[in-house]
């Protein structure tokens, strides 16, 4: 079957949305894997499909128009894509848990923190009834909330953004999951609070021994957290390799452009590099050819005719670009 070491393996995932009777793929042919205890960062701009991809893994797509059309999501070798809600409920929160960008909308505003935390433990563990509250409080302690005894009686609106995100993390790790999916967990937070939360995720990951799939748009966070990086653009993986090579040997023109367009504290630059144009919208995506072609500084005529495939350029480094396609005459040398 598949790679035995991988905890999560996504193979040729296509997630489509039905808009006006036509299916558009927000995620088109995404494949990558997450190994146990590894931190994989998925990075991309808004609309690149990174969130749809994470919702597909958890089977949380909007039921009326979103659907996985093709591909497999293998968790320990078992395909999650065809599972129904009942079967998924046994996995969500227990084996794979998720934290979201906006902890205010992810928590129920009319239930106390304690109630919401107990619920996870009641549903997924065999902790005795009288022990549950104690366990909830100890989980809050684990995420750095010292007044857990009081917090359990409070409502989400009484907490600050950073505290809410800590509560979310406490709930997510309640059942010692193997995989934590964090979708932009620090985007809504201030930098000093972001630093606290990132440190907490690293500490918890160490203690629980889980893998983390971190979805973000912030390359600083990627450099800080990732072991491996998956760069997405317009629903596709365009580059995948370890964190060092993403920053020091980027190959796809999009990755290169992205890295030079962010202002940096440690560098003096008068003019930032820009990527002209914007990400094409889902309904205006080119049917054939590379999806980055209109914004690519290195575009060639054939980029409009041939779909580039994700191919390995060296060990542990995959790129989706015709410049690196072995069959192409202009192919760049592997070691540069």
């Amino acid at each position: 079957m598949s790679n035995q070491e991988a905890l999560l393996e996504i193979k040729n995932l296509h997630t489509g949305f039905n808009i006006g009777g036509k299916t558009y793929h927000a995620v088109k042919d995404v494949s990558f894997d997450v190994k146990p205890k590894e931190v994989v960062c998925v990075v991309g701009e808004s609309g690149c499909g990174k969130s749809v991809m994470s919702l597909s893994i958890m089977n949380l797509l909007p039921k009326h128009n979103g659907k996985i059309d093709k591909g497999e999501i293998l968790y320990k070798g078992r395909d999650l894509a065809p599972l129904n809600d009942n079967e998924m409920n046994k996995i969500r929160g227990k084996d794979i848990s998720m934290i979201f960008q906006e902890p205010m909308t992810a928590l129920n505003p009319v239930l106390t923190i304690g109630y919401q935390m107990d619920e996870v433990l009641i549903n997924h563990t065999k902790v005795k009834k009288e022990e549950i509250r104690k366990k909830s409080i100890s989980l809050l302690k684990q995420v750095g909330i010292s007044r857990g005894e009081q917090i359990v009686h409070e409502y989400p609106h009484q907490l600050s953004g950073g505290m809410r995100q800590r509560v979310m993390i406490a709930m997510a790790i309640a059942c010692q999951p193997q995989l934590l999916i964090a979708d932009e967990p620090t985007t809504a937070l201030d930098v000093t609070v972001q630093a606290q939360i990132l440190e907490l995720i690293t500490k918890i990951q160490d203690e629980v021994g889980m893998a983390v799939l971190l979805i973000t748009h912030d390359l600083g966070v990627v450099a800080e957290m990732a072991d491996r990086v998956v760069v997405m653009y317009a629903g596709q993986v365009v580059e995948e390799t370890d964190v060092d090579r993403i920053f020091y040997d980027p190959q796809h023109p999009y990755t290169k452009a992205l890295l030079t367009s962010i202002p940096r504290m440690d560098e003096e630059r008068e003019v930032l590099n820009t990527i002209s144009g914007i990400v094409p919208s889902l309904t205006k995506m080119p049917e054939v050819g590379c999806r980055f072609v209109d914004r690519c500084p290195e575009a060639m005529p054939e980029c409009r005719q041939i779909d580039p495939q994700l191919g390995q350029t060296e060990k542990g480094h995959s790129v989706r670009c015709l410049l690196y396609d072995a069959s192409h005459p202009d192919k760049k040398t592997e070691v540069r």
Binding site: V191, A195, E199, G220, V221, A226, I262, R264, D266
Partner: peptide, 15 residues
Amino acid sequence: AIPQPDPRNKSERII
């Protein structure tokens, strides 16, 4: 606290 986009430069943070 600002994460730097450079994996080789992980300086000590003041949290």
